[in-house]
Amino acid sequence: MDKFWNSLADLDRRWLFALTFLAISIPLLTGIVLPQKVTPMVENVFNAIDELPSGTKILMPLDYDPSAEGELQPMADAFLRHAAQKNHKIYFMTIWPTGVAMIQRQVATLKKEYPEYVYGEDYVNLGYRPGYEGVIKLITSDLPKLYGADQQGTPVAKIPMMADIDNIKQFPLIVNVSAGDPGLKQWVQYAATPFDSIEIVGGTTGVQASTLYPYIPNQMIGMIAGIKPAAEYEKLMFEKYPEIEKRPNSNMANVFMTSQEVAHFMLIGIIILGNLVMWQTSGRRDQS
């Protein structure tokens, strides 16, 4: 028995890596979806988009890169589908250079699933501008100064839905998806907080959540932090708009959630095992 505990104490971490791989990949391959219980914060985020009158202008900055895509893409997709379902006008932009490709994906989804959405009238891709949070500060006072043209180089003067956009205050809601700084925190600090007419909801990685909770609810309506709330959001969306559920990859957060579920229980097991090993081996060390 001692040998067993000693071998566990010196366990090669690659065994843990293998266990993690199995815990994540097997549920992913099975595609099993577990039931979700919707939390109030997710409901608030959902209502923020849902209760806006149809055709409201929504600014959707996508500030993340491919590395965080696994965690953030499902929520970005959910926000997009929800906004399109409500016929909101969507303004894409990013302050991350890698965000351009993320917007392209959203535009592709929009073209495929909502062919009635017309570029320039229902959605526009303003693309990337360098300057980190400086971009946010600038567009609060003068958006056309920085965005003279869209991502394709079309002057904003020729884009119908940009005609009455002078600054960020023309957007009643900002829906930001971000993987770090500059991101949701800066959008809250520089865009939503100083202007009472602007509300903000966001999606971010689970690890960023702890630093963003202090802004809720006074400065931000709520956020989707990680896969679990994203799965809850999908559930709410499917309940209200059942036609979305039939679309391919529309329930990715729920599929990923099953993997996360198993991985969490595996982690709990690993932590308990680590402690058992410590108690067993330290006891013997004391005796010796």
């Binding site: 209502n47 209760e51 806006l52 009643p172 009472d196 007419s197 509300e199």
Partner: peptide, 8 residues
């Protein structure tokens, strides 16, 4: 008095 937040 500040402008009230949009009440939905």
């Amino acid at each position: 008095i500040k402008e009230p937040k949009k009440d939905r």
